[in-house]
């Protein structure tokens, strides 16, 4: 279990508990966090679950896979902190993680 805080583009914050093994995207959907559409359901096919995660967390959440990297390469508003939340599996180590949502998903 990890407490993860989602911050919408307009600043609205949602802190939710997500159980281990789910993805950050699934945790957002289950907790009704707006702004994460995840059209493809986590197949890494649509890039509608784009989030920003402080790169300081990369040790705990893992690096981008090459598929994720390629999806993000062609997404809007991409930054160094960009991740696809369907590709991040939650572990207890991620307690306190903060993810921000891009403008396009506002």
């Amino acid at each position: 279990m990890a407490k993860i805080t989602f911050i919408e583009y307009d600043g609205a914050e949602h802190s939710v508990d997500i159980q281990d093994g789910l993805t950050v995207m699934e945790g957002a959907i289950r907790n009704m966090v707006p702004g994460i559409d995840a059209d493809c359901g986590g197949a890494c096919a649509c890039a509608t679950c784009h989030v920003y995660v402080d790169p300081a967390w990369s040790g705990k959440i893992g690096e981008r896979s090459s598929m994720e990297e390629s999806m993000l390469d062609f997404a809007s508003d991409v930054q160094d902190a960009s991740r696809l939340s369907c590709q991040i599996k939650v572990t207890a180590e991620m307690d306190g993680l903060v993810v921000r949502l891009p403008k396009e998903q506002g």
Partner: peptide, 10 residues
């Protein structure tokens, strides 16, 4: 081949 797919979409 994700880059090919994504670039083709655009």
């Amino acid at each position: 081949s994700v880059p090919e797919y994504r670039a083709a979409q655009h």
